[in-house]
Structure formats: C-alpha cells, structure tokens
Design a protein around this nucleic acid. Structure first.
Length: 1083
RNA sequence: GGGCCAGUAGCUCAGGUGGUUAGAGCGCACGCCUGAUAAGCGUGAGGUCGGAGGUUCAACUCCUCCCUGGCCCA
C-alpha cells in the first residue's frame, strides 16, 4: 500500500498554502473557463429569479461594508442559480449627481456654482463624465476578487443617452398622468451646492450641532403706559431679521406676569411653559396679572426685533396670528414667523397674507445692503445678531443646546430652509398604493418594511426631483419664455426632433449645455419654448433602472416583461429612503406603463434584504475621520474572501450592526475553513492509497450505523439550509451547515471512523469502502451547501472530489427522501451524551483514556410516548462507545438503580398549575421523596405527597428523577441518561494499558526518526519485568500498531539491531524504566 | 424630543407560549491524543441575564420607569 502522488485521485491541499493564494489560482481558472458565463448559459432555460443590482457610484473607493452588502447579494443569487433558476446579474453604474460634481470641483480647486459657470459648463460636464469611472477598475477588481459575480460587459450606465431617454419617458409618462408639477415650496437647500435637496437626501445628512437657544421679549403695542412684552423662543436667531409675524395657539392659555419686585413692565407667555422658561418656582417671584386664551392675543401688534430689512408694500406685518402648530411642548408658546425660512412659516404666511422678506442670497449670505450682517453667511450671523439683540434690550436670555440638524449629505454644509422654485412628482397622489405595495413585499427584517419604511411612507410628501445643478439627466421640460404656464414635457429623442422640426445631430448628447440650445417657437404663437435649467435628481436615475437599464420602452419590451419586477434586491439600511424609495415611487407612479405593474402589485421588488452597518471592533462607525476604515483588499489578502464572506454573514443576522474584528475572522470563519480542509486532507491522504468512488462501494443502507447516521444528518441539514436560504435567512443557514460539519462530521464521525480508513493490502475492505464513500458524499454535499457563502474553497474541493465545479451543481440533491432516520439520530444522540458522561466519569476517577477498563453500564431515560431504540441498533452503536471510552464491554441496563440513589426534581410548570400558591410546598414534598419511594414509583406503584395536610397522588409529569452515584462504579447522570464506569483495574487490564502506552511511545519515536507512516520497523524492548511481560502478552497488537516486522523483548534485545541506524529511547512507564530501540526494516 | 433595534460569560451570539442547575462557539486554564499533527479531543473556571420598581406561587422571559449603544426621524 503506497500512495502514488503522480496519479493521486484526490489532489493534496497543503494547509500551509494561504487562502489568498488558493483563491487567486481559482480566479485565474474561472477566467480561463469563463465559469460565470457558463453558469449563466447552463441556467438560461430556468425559471428567472430576477435580481436588481443597485448601482454604486464609481468615484469613491469600495470599502469593507461594500464587501458585506455584495456578499449578501451574491449568496442568494448563487443559491437560486444552484436551484436552477436563471439569475440575471446585470451590473450598473450610478454616474450622475452631486457627488461627481463635488469631486470635479475639488480637483479643479473651485467651489460653488458661479465658479463652475465661469469655468464653463461644457468642459465641467466633460470632466464629470471622465471622473465617474475613476475607481471603476477597482470596483470591478474587488467584485471579482470577492467572487461577486456581475455582468460588467453589459453594465447599465445612467449617463448613457439611451438610459437618459428612458428616464425622460418616465417623467413624460408621469406628466401625462398629471403627476409632475412646478411648485414654490420651502425646501432644504445647500447654499454651497446651490440646490435644493429632497426629503430622502435630507435623511442622509443629520449631524449633532450646538445651536443658540434664544428668548427675545418683544414689545406689544397697546394704549396703556406700562411696557408689555411677549416672550418668543427661537433656535435660529438669523431668521429674526426676516420676522414678519408671531403665532400663538388659540387653544392655549397665556398669562401676563409682573415681577414681584415692583417692575413697571409685564411679560406674556403660555401658562404651561412658565415653569420651563422662568424656573419651577416662578409663582413665588411673579404675579399673574391676567390669564387669557390665545384668541385674545390674535390680532395684536408688536415691534419686530430687528428693523434692518424694509417690508415690501404688500402683506401684513408685525401682527400676532393664530396657528394650531404652535404647541406647549417647548419654547414659550409663541412662535416667530419668517415666511421665507420655514415650512410652517411659509404656510402661515400664505394663510394670513403675511409680508415676505428674503434677505439671504443663493449662497446663503445676507444681502450686502443689510446692516451689521451684510455679506455674512447665515449661520455665522447668529452671534452677531444675539449681540445686537442684547444691545437693543430685546434679548431675554440666550443659551446653547445640542440637537440634530440637517447638513448637505455630500459636502457637509449646513442646510438652510428656504423658498425655492422646484419641480415635483406628486407622490402623495399615490401614497396609499406605495404603502400597500410595501406591505405586500417580503421585508427582511420585517420591521424595516412595516416600521421604518412603512410609517415613513405614510407621511410621504411630494418628491422634489429637480436640481439646480449641471451634471445630471436634464429635466425634459420646456417652458414658454413669454408665458410660463405653457409647458411641454418631452418623452423621447424622436419627440424632441419633431418639436425642433429637424433631426438631432449625430453627436447628440442630452446633457447640459448642449440640450439647452434646443428651442422652438411656442405652439401658442408667441414666445419661445426653452428648456428649464434644472437637471433631475440622481436618485430618480437609479430608481428608473428596472426599465432604463433596458432602454425601455424603446427597446427590449419582452426583456422587461420577463424581468420586472425583481424577485430580490439587497442594500444597506441607508437605502431605505434612497434606492428602496426611488424604485418604489417611480414604479408605482408609472403603474401599468410598466409590465406586471398594475394596481398594488408587490413591485418593483418582491423581497428585500436590508443589511445594517459594519462597525469597527469597538462598535464605532467606520469613518475616514476616525481612521478606522478597513481596507477590503488587505482583509482578502490576510484571510481570503471565503473567510471574510463567511464571517460577515454568519457572525450575526445581517440586519443588526456587526462589529468587524479581524481577529474574529480567523477565530470563527477561518478556523472553520481549516477544519473543512483538514477533513478533506484526511480523506485524500487515505483514499490515495487506492480508493475512488465505484460500484464496489456498499449502498448506504448496507453501511454501518455511523455512516447511516452522518448521512441522515447530512440530508436534514441540506433540507434545512435550502429552506433557510429560500427564506432569506443566510445567517441561520450558514450556521446550521457549519455547526453540522464541525460538530457532527469532524468531531464525531471522522474521529470515530479514523481507523476504518486505514486498510492493509491494495484493496480497501468493504468497511473502508463504506467509510470512504460516506465521507466523500458528506464533503461533496457540504461544499454545495457552503458554495454560496465561500465560493472558492468549496469549488476547489468539489472539483477535487467530483471533477466538476460546485457552481454548476444543484444546491440540494433531488432525492434524499428516506435518508433521514429519526430513530437513528435520537439513538446516536444518546450514545454521544453517554460518551460525554463516560469521559466525565473517567475524569472523576482519574484514569486516562489509554488505560482500558472492563465495562461501562449505560441506562437510557424512560421517555413517555417514545419507543426505546431497537436492541440491534444499540448493540451496533455500543461498538462506538467501546472505542470512545476504551472499555471492553458496554452493558445496557433497564435501570441503574443498583448503582445510584434516586432523587426527585419537581416539575414546577405542572405543579404550579395544580397547586397554585402551595407550589413551593408541593415542590418541597416531591423533593423530599426518598430513593426507595421513587424506585417504587418508577415501577408503577402509587405514591402520594402530603401538601397542607392533604394527600395528593404523585403523577409522572410532576417530577423528573435524577440519579447520583453510590456504589463502586463511577457514575455520571444527565437527564435520565446514566453512564456507570467500572473503575477496577485487573492485572490483565493493567498489562494491556501498558502495551498501549508503549505503542504510543514507539509511535512518537517513529515520528522523531522521520519514518514514513507506511515504513516497517524492527523493534526491541528492554525493561522492568512487568513491562516486558506486557509486551510479550500483546506482541501481535504492538507489532500491528507500530508496523514492526519483528519484536524482540528482554535484556540484549537491541543487540540484534545494527547500531548504525537505530533509534533508542529510555523512558519511564508507570514507574518502570523501559528502553525502546527501533530501526527501519529494509526488506 | 419621538420611533425602531439592541444590552445575557473576557468576546460573538442562542435562549416558543413565565417554571427553579441560563446554554453554545471562541478565548483562557488544566489535561488527553500524537498515523488529520503549524491538526484533533476532553474537562474546568467565568454570568446578581443593563438598573430600579411592579404583576405572579414563580420573571432572562410580562408591565412601568430609568440608564447605555446604534439607526431613523423631528
């Protein structure tokens, strides 16, 4: 029996080879084989499982969180493909929008719209187009490196003119439905970028800031001689410049107070807030002059805090109005109104016909004409204004407070709420349908769909889709310059040419500035139709991908009919208000203009997996400023993509934030993969001596119980993993497989089977064949089960085992019915627990496993309603127990009562129902039952317990009976299972133990001598009489174990071995000195 | 300020419908094994289950309040 490396059936997998190296080798192979394309072709006829790739922006570097999100996408796609679905994997790039413009601004060293205009929009956009793919190579390489399979050759690109045309079609379709309108609204606006932000962009940029908290006391106009002032609270002092009114709630009660020190003035504020503003003991220091309803204040006039800005001719000013949004939650119950700078303010302004002053320009600076703060950025004006308020004696008190305030999600500039002209999609018109669709989707985890996303949708506001920027899909809206109410929305390039009355040029580009040159006479007769200057929110681009990626409806109508809606998408939780929303808002608005999209269908995606953030090892968010960003390339190089993927998915459910701890990768996923490889290595080591799968292998039903057991477990795990992945529970699926392989396969099956793989002669025995075939099957199937998670090592191994790529295999075997054997699994479970108990018993008496013992007595628990395992099965499994515990015999006993004392443990759940408050007493009575009473009870004799003077019959479910050792045997018990070990050593057992000990020493010596495992030796042993006797008594055993062709024993035994190449060692064996000499036997 | 999620061993996580010895893996300690060997196996120590109240015969589990972290929103 000699392994033949040249034609080894199972190639070696050296442990010292770094995962990185193995993975690179496989990547090269996959490229050569065009494996991804072949997988796609092989599944082309399968039922589609549609996956949409959310397009990344390629002008930033990919990070470890991208590896995480992409692992999730990839693994479900792989699983469905292995289920023989056709899974389209079209890549895409998000190429428009502010992020790109900001990058280019930075590279040019310019900032802001005026500088871009000065630089030239044509050249600026040309640079944007170039910059978009700055890191495209790195993205594609990282995708490949981590085995995220995507079709980059046919990627969709949002700036391509075909893509833009589809976006135009969508907007035109919405416009035709009356869902596109021009509005003047208060919007969050970035003064640096010069554009408004939509509500979902807003969500991306909240930061904790410290703002002033300012109370001002404004003089009320009245006839009396006394000064009366009204208290107003604001956190934006800079808006006081634009104050035109105050608002009170007509429903609230207000009080007018005078200080007890005899002040000649009074103040007014909401009664409920007096304590918060003036101190809890305000009543001790202030007299209530009068209490009044808010209605009494409405209509009163006051003097505004600052008079720097002229009021326009029109509109009410310096008046108190009634508004229901005013609450007694915080402030003073009096709200200052600046209609140009707040949503509520603006609405109130419209309702009450208030004057409108807007002294802040598009860059966020006060107009130069404003005193004190002219030219100052609005936020920087706050301290100047507070100073001025103090000077003018209107400041009541000023403090600071911390709160979240929105900032530009890209450039970080603090946003200003101000009135803008903007184009909107009237999403509120179909909000209910969006809510219904979302509710019909399979959200993972569900609470994101029902909670975070669902409740947010219910408060949906119209989508501001226009951006006052340059690099984006142009808004396809043309307006008559003589009559702004005359509007034409263009839905295709053909329509544009038709309006123009001439064909578009060959080098037609829909982007600014070229597109702005296309004008035509207004159909109404006077004026010219000119395109509005805005571009479209880039989120609208990415949300259009279900159809725009196919240039629908201009091309590929059948394709979209097949690939809409998506079965599955997966993105980070930050996309809730991003891509998840834009997809839903556009598709719902388009309705039956898209296929399979009528009514409240769960579209454009049926299932979503939402992943949470990747934090650093300390639980902190990763950010460039903290310097804790993990470089994915380094992780792959050190641990391999398999380990990284497996770690990210298995460490915790993907929808909870996970800590990324490099040490943990190695300790969990890395160690698991080492175990997987070791088991393969073990199989290949022995199989290469002459086994390969063949018809000579016994059928599974004819194999030993251990084999049937592991195959039964395998089938169960296979079924479970398939189901869990089908339910989008990747974490549980991965854990289930890993636990099975580590615990059942490596720690039990392989360990107990080791000897079976060693076969003498050139032909494996039937038992060896059974073992090989079983382990081979277990490994191959496990590779398939893990392939979606760890696509590299599983492919290597599956090829080594079967010759075929795992990625072309079916996930679960079609026919495993009957492979699962519940009774066998239950019996094995008992045996394993008995083995643990037996080992614990050995530990307790201090006899190590190498020393054989006479017997172990096993007792199985009585399980009501469940049959005991069949006798034959027990006998078969006893052999495992014998080996594992190194005992001569396993005896099964009906009860271990002779060996133990019985103790009763009360079952509180049952007793509690029966005895209520007396439960503790009943439990005490049960616990006090003696061993004899319990034995009688187990025999079926009636036993009663006394509780509060009454006798109650004891029922079987009232208690669990435990056993404690009493006799000579070492007894361990758990849950009714008993292992009782006979610790007595007979001279024969002692002798055998000695022989085994000697074998162990010889094996060590062999290894130190550098012998191959199959080398034969000659052996000589000299030592104390009892040692020599032991060797003589077990000579055949010793010779067989250490592959000795001859064993000499006694003084001078070593003389027969030539001194030139012999190894000698002296050691102490159980108190006796021994000399062992060995030499390689040259046949 | 509001909503959602989380807080269980040093670390990462499990712990239907409340039931009395709170589990696993990793790490650690000790030991075993030495023909899977830069592997394999066992045993053990470690927890007032974030805190305080409450409901109950009985609370990691249910209720209230609070604290801490994360996310989302105002």
């Amino acid at each position: 029996m000699t392994p033949n490396a040249a034609d080894a059936a199972f190639p070696p997998l050296p442990a010292e080879r770094a995962p990185h190296e193995l993975e690179l080798e496989l990547l090269a192979r996959w490229r050569d084989e065009r494996l991804f394309e072949r997988v796609q072709e092989a599944r082309a006829g399968g039922e589609p499982f549609v996956f949409y790739e959310g397009p990344p922006t390629a002008n930033g570097r990919p990070g470890i969180h991208h590896v995480f999100a992409r692992t999730i996408k990839d693994l479900f796609c792989r699983h469905r493909a292995m289920r023989n679905h056709f899974v389209p994997r079209k890549a895409g790039w998000d190429t428009h929008g502010l992020p790109v413009e900001i990058e280019v601004e930075k590279s040019l060293g310019i900032s802001g719209k005026p500088e871009i205009e000065k630089f030239g929009v044509a050249e600026f956009n040309r640079l944007c187009r170039e910059s978009v793919f700055k890191y495209r190579g790195e993205w594609e390489e990282l995708s490949e490196r981590m085995a995220y399979w995507l079709d980059y050759e046919r990627a969709y690109v949002t700036y391509h003119k075909e893509y833009v045309e589809s976006v135009w079609w969508a907007l035109k379709t919405l416009a035709d439905k009356g869902l596109l309108f021009r509005g003047h609204k208060i919007l969050p606006y970035c003064p640096r970028c010069g554009t408004a932000l939509s509500s979902h962009e807003l969500a991306l940029g909240y930061k904790v800031v410290t703002d002033p908290s300012v109370y001002v006391a404004l003089d009320l106009e009245h006839d009396g001689p006394e000064r009366r002032r009204i208290l107003v609270w604001t956190t934006t002092p800079w808006t006081l410049v634009s104050n035109t009114a105050l608002a009170v709630n007509p429903e609230l009660t207000y009080v007018e107070l005078r200080k007890r020190t005899g002040a000649q003035w009074t103040i007014v504020l909401a009664q409920d807030l007096a304590g918060a503003v003036l101190g809890a003991d305000w009543a001790d220091r202030w007299d209530v002059v009068q209490a009044m309803p808010g209605t009494a204040l409405v209509g009163m006039r006051y003097r505004r805090p600052l008079d720097w800005v002229e009021f326009p001719e029109a509109g009410e000013r310096q008046v108190i109005v009634g508004e229901s949004f005013v609450t007694a939650q915080d402030g003073t119950g009096v709200v200052h109104i600046a209609p140009a700078f707040g949503v509520d303010d603006y609405e109130a302004g419209k309702r009450h016909g208030l004057a409108f002053v807007q002294p802040v320009n598009a860059r966020g600076e006060f107009d130069a004409s404003v005193p004190v703060v002219g030219g100052v950025f609005f936020k920087k004006a706050d301290p100047l204004i507070v100073e001025e308020l103090k000077r003018r004696d209107v400041l009541w008190k000023a403090a600071e407070f911390e709160h979240d305030y929105p900032h530009c999600w890209r450039c970080g500039t603090v946003l200003i709420y101000s009135a803008r002209d903007s184009w909107f999609v009237r999403t509120t018109a179909y909000r209910d349908s969006m809510v219904a669709r979302s509710a019909a989707m399979n959200w993972n985890p569900p609470e994101v769909g029902s909670g975070r996303f669902g409740s947010w949708l219910e408060n949906n506001i119209d989508w501001a889709v226009s951006r006052d920027r340059y690099w984006g899909s142009p808004l396809p809206v043309w307006v008559n310059d003589a009559d702004p109410s005359e509007i034409q929305v263009v839905g295709s390039y053909a329509e544009l040419a038709e309006r123009l009355g001439r064909p578009l040029p060959d080098d037609f580009d829909p982007h600014k500035p070229q597109v702005d040159e296309y004008t035509w006479p207004a159909p109404s007769g006077t004026g010219t139709m000119r395109r509005v200057p805005q571009v479209i929110d880039a989120w609208f681009d990415s949300g259009s991908m279900p159809f725009a990626q196919w240039h629908y409806p201009f091309e590929n109508r059948e394709m979209v009919a097949r690939q809409f809606p998506a079965d599955f998408i997966a993105e980070g939780v930050d996309q809730t208000r991003g891509w998840f929303y834009s997809l839903l808002a556009i598709a719902t608005g388009l309705g039956d203009a898209l296929p399979n999209n009528a009514g409240d269908a769960p579209a454009p995606y049926r299932a979503v997996v939402v992943n949470d953030l990747v934090l650093d090892a300390a639980g902190q968010k990763m950010s460039k400023s903290r310097g804790n960003v993990v470089n994915p390339w380094e992780i792959m190089e050190r641990h391999g993509a398999d380990a990284a993927r497996l770690f990210l998915v298995s460490s915790s459910q993907v929808w909870v934030p996970r800590r990324f701890d490099e040490a943990a990768i190695r300790q969990t996923a890395g160690n698991f993969l080492v175990t997987l490889k070791n088991v393969y290595r073990f199989l290949s080591l022995y199989a290469n001596f002459g086994w390969a799968p063949s018809d000579a292998d016994p059928a599974p039903a004819d194999r030993p119980a251990l084999d049937r057991w592991v195959l039964s477990r395998l089938a169960g795990v296979e079924r479970e993993a398939d189901r869990l992945l089908g339910d989008y529970d990747a974490t549980s699926a991965a854990r289930r497989v890993m636990e099975f392989f580590d615990d059942d396969v490596s720690k039990w099956y392989v360990r107990l089977s080791r000897a079976r793989f060693w076969f003498p002669g050139s032909e494996p025995t039937a038992d060896a064949r059974a073992a090989f075939a079983t382990l081979h099957e277990v490994l191959a199937v496990t590779c398939r089960l893990l392939a979606p998670f760890a696509p590299f090592v599983t492919d290597w191994m599956h090829r080594a085992l079967t010759g075929a790529s795992v990625h072309l295999a079916a996930y679960a075997r079609p026919n495993t019915t009957g492979a699962e054997d519940e009774a066998l699994e239950a019996a094995m479970d008992d045996v394993r627990r008995l083995a643990n108990l037996g080992r614990a018993a050995r530990e307790a008496v201090g006899i190590n496993v190498r020393q054989p013992l006479a017997e172990v007595v096993g007792v199985l628990p009585v399980r009501p309603g469940q049959p005991q395992p069949p006798r034959a099965l027990l006998e078969e499994l006893s052999a495992l127990l014998r080996t594992e515990l190194n005992v001569k015999a396993v005896r099964w006993a009906e009860s271990g009562d002779a060996l133990v004392t019985l103790e009763a443990k009360p079952n509180f759940r049952v007793l509690g129902k029966r005895f209520g408050k007396a439960t503790p007493l009943a439990a005490q009575a049960v616990g006090a039952l003696g061993s004899e009473a319990l034995q009688a009870f187990e025999r079926g004799e009636p036993v009663t317990i006394a509780v509060e003077g009454a006798e109650h019959p004891l029922l079987p479910e009232d208690l669990a009976i435990h056993r404690r050792a009493t006799g000579e045997y070492a007894v361990q018990e758990e849950g009714g299972l008993v292992a009782a070990l006979d610790p007595r050593l007979t001279p024969e057992l002692k002798q055998e133990g000695m022989a085994r000990e000697l074998v162990s020493r010889v094996q060590r010596l062999r290894k130190e001598a550098g012998l191959e495992v199959s080398d034969r030796i000659v052996l000589a042993v000299t030592g104390a009489p009892e040692v020599e006797a032991a060797v003589r008594a077990h000579e055949a055993y010793v010779a067989g174990e250490v592959l000795a062709t001859s064993v000499r024993v006694g003084a001078g035994a070593a003389d027969a071995i030539h001194p030139s190449n012999r190894q000698t060692q002296a050691f102490d064996l159980d108190g006796s000195a021994v000399h062992v000499t060995l030499s390689k036997d040259h046949p």
